[in-house]
Design a protein around this nucleic acid. Structure first.
Length: 580
RNA sequence: GCGCCUGUAGCUCAGUUGGAUAGAGCACCGGACUUCUAAUCCGGCGGUCGCAGGUUCGAAUCCUGCCAGGCGCGCCA
């Protein structure tokens, strides 16, 4: 029985004498933001006053007098403000919570909301037509942290990256590379209209020209280790491809470009600390006939019709603005149909839920995709879409153009070079998913020493330092335990403890609400309270009992910070390096 | 025109899902290093929560209407 249950039960017992029962009223318990208002608070008196024709504050006083609790759990019950009833936990109860935190078993017990259910989280899924940009970086920070959060609360979360390797964009990429290569080889070549003009195409062409067909095959060998087996290098080399008929030539260049770009993208991801359980290739959907089968299954749902030689899905039945083509009049399937097949396969793979992180330019896809899933017989709430709003980067006081085609954009690698992966991840996770964010690159660079992330890292390093000093002073094998922790009564100590025991609630809340940014807010709060505690309370002091208790508090704080930084995906340093 | 998102301190953003006196960081002003690391701490300055109504004991939070900004409305992906 949690403390919430204990309090609720007791409130309901008292309410019976007013003729109110559990089915009549909802008892909300919440944590007051002001610590002087206690640890939990209820508005029950205000919520029922009207119905009982009473004054809220008077009713609160009456109820408070009737409530009877074990003093080892609830220390006091007070009324305040317009009619709040505030509960203050007994120190012994808080110590129990702290010790739960120390033993992983206890903490996990509280976090068992996932019950092992499989959940698929798809993020980034950038077109393989250029280096990953900062929008992908934001998605990476969110997606990876959400996966860790879901795992932390007992889900079996799966990180997935969808590779659109079958579309026209990849062909266009190949044609762009072909044109650049031919240019460099002194052949006249028309650069495709809307082709990719980025510098990376030049770099790729330059590198390619010197390569033998054997060297190209060797480049593909790096894929043997992971889930990239689908990728193979094209036969031959640049000289040979240029001599081929245009179609076949473009195909070879596309294949090569795809291989190179995915290699880059994966490297960038690794550098950013991102790991994917699956890289799912669109081409596989076509080869395995899943696209066709999805088509047929949709057809059976009777929400498909023919018009103007094309096949349409009646997505307006599901709230879409207009119906969508799934097979073009030339007989080829649309991207949408492949995407439907992909998501349906996700469902078939046994995930009880799928979360997609999408950019704001894709929000229009939600109704049609949801509709298609429902038409295929997938539960309505199976697909969950999180829209990550655009990142607007500002450099030299000007917005940075993000178009890949024009080749002017901030890459994820450049971001790592500038501010470091840790700082970038942390900053992305200080914003909630649907906030539009302006990221001033110049400021991020300049401020890298004044950045909030260092505040948190420093708190951790500071604890490590104190603990090293303690070790030298012969405090070995300190472990949190009941009696010393119960001695912590100074205000800064109580405030820190109060915050630490929120950990399970913060993790659960962040996971359930899909709001990883709550972690950075929490890390900031814990760090701040630790810094205050550090300044106001001498840890390694004269009194051995006090020292022991405070060292235990340090250990607990460090554990909490580590856990949170781990979830955010950044390093918890033992010591801070020299300031630049 | 329709749809989605956003509007909170000079700037960048939080605000525990409707609670009590709206909070951080940066910037600015003033203090604290002979000390367990000052990448820290303490104090100050700074607000018609875009505007106007509504819902109720109570609204930054919910509903409606405006205003402003971003994005989307292809047999592209």
């Amino acid at each position: 029985m949690t403390i919430h249950d204990i309090i609720r039960t007791e409130i309901f017992r008292c309410l019976e004498s007013y003729g109110l029962f559990e089915e009549d009223v909802k008892v909300d318990l919440e944590k007051p933001r002001d610590p002087s208002h206690g640890d939990l608070s209820t508005n029950i008196a205000m919520a029922t006053a009207k119905r009982l024709d009473r004054k809220p504050r008077e009713l609160a006083g009456e109820l408070a007098a009737k409530l009877d609790f074990d003093h080892d759990v609830i220390e006091s019950v007070e009324i305040a403000g317009p009619g709040f009833i505030n509960f203050r936990f007994a120190p012994a109860y808080q110590v129990d919570l702290l010790l739960d935190l120390w033993s992983d078993e206890g903490a996990i017990l509280d976090m068992n909301t996932g019950r092992g259910r499989r959940i698929n989280v798809e993020f980034i899924s950038a077109n393989p037509t250029g280096p990953l940009n900062v929008v992908s970086a934001r998605a990476g920070a969110f997606g990876a942290t959400l996966v860790r959060l879901l795992d932390a609360v007992g889900y079996d979360a799966h990180a997935e990256y969808y590779v659109n390797d079958a579309g026209r964009q990849v062909m266009l990429l190949g044609k762009s590379l072909r044109a650049r290569t031919m240019e460099m080889l002194g052949h006249p070549a028309d650069f495709p209209e809307d082709g990719y003009k980025g510098r990376y195409i030049h770099m790729m062409a330059e590198e390619l020209i010197g390569l033998s067909s054997r060297a190209i095959q060797e480049q593909a060998e790096v894929f043997n280790d992971e889930s990239f087996q689908r990728l193979t290098a094209p036969d031959g080399n640049a000289d040979a491809w240029v001599a081929l008929p245009e179609d076949e030539s473009s195909r070879r260049f596309s294949k090569y470009a795809l291989m190179k770009i995915l290699t880059w993208q994966r490297q960038t991801c690794r550098r950013f600390g991102l790991r994917f359980d699956t890289w799912y290739f669109e081409s596989e959907l076509h080869e395995t006939k899943r696209v066709e089968r999805a088509h047929e299954r949709l057809r059976k749902s009777e929400s498909v019709y023919e018009q103007d030689d094309a096949t349409w899905f009646r997505s307006t039945d599901y709230g879409d603005e207009k119906d969508r083509v799934i097979v073009r009049s030339d007989g080829t399937p649309t991207y949408f149909l492949a995407d439907v097949a992909y998501h349906y396969h996700k469902f078939q793979r046994g995930f009880e839920r799928a979360i997609d992180f999408l950019g704001p330019d894709h929000h229009g896809h939600i109704p049609r995709m949801r509709g298609a899933m429902i038409a295929l017989g997938v539960p309505e709430d199976w697909l969950e879409v999180q829209i990550l709003q655009q990142v607007n980067f500002v450099e030299n006081g000007r917005p940075v153009d993000m178009s890949k085609r024009e080749g002017q954009f901030v890459t994820m690698d450049a971001l790592c070079d500038d501010v470091g992966a840790d700082v970038a991840k942390y900053i992305f996770l200080t914003r909630k998913p649907n906030s539009h964010l302006d990221f001033d690159l110049d400021l991020a660079r300049e401020q890298s020493n004044e950045n909030p992330v260092y505040y948190v890292k420093y708190a951790h390093a500071r604890i490590c330092s104190v603990l090293r000093k303690a070790d030298e002073a012969d405090w070995k094998n300190v472990t949190p335990s009941t009696a010393p922790l119960a001695r912590l009564e100074a205000a800064p100590e109580r405030a820190l403890i109060r915050e630490l025991i929120r950990l399970p609630e913060v993790i659960t809340g962040a996971a359930v609400a899909r709001e990883p940014h709550r972690l950075t807010t929490y890390a900031q709060d814990v760090s701040g309270l630790f810094h205050q505690f550090y300044h106001q309370c001498v840890i390694l002091g004269e009194d051995r009992d006090t020292t022991e208790a405070r060292l235990q508090l340090c250990l607990l704080t460090r554990k909490v910070l580590r856990r949170v930084l781990d979830l955010i995906g950044i390093d918890a340093p033992e010591a801070m390096g020299e300031k630049e």
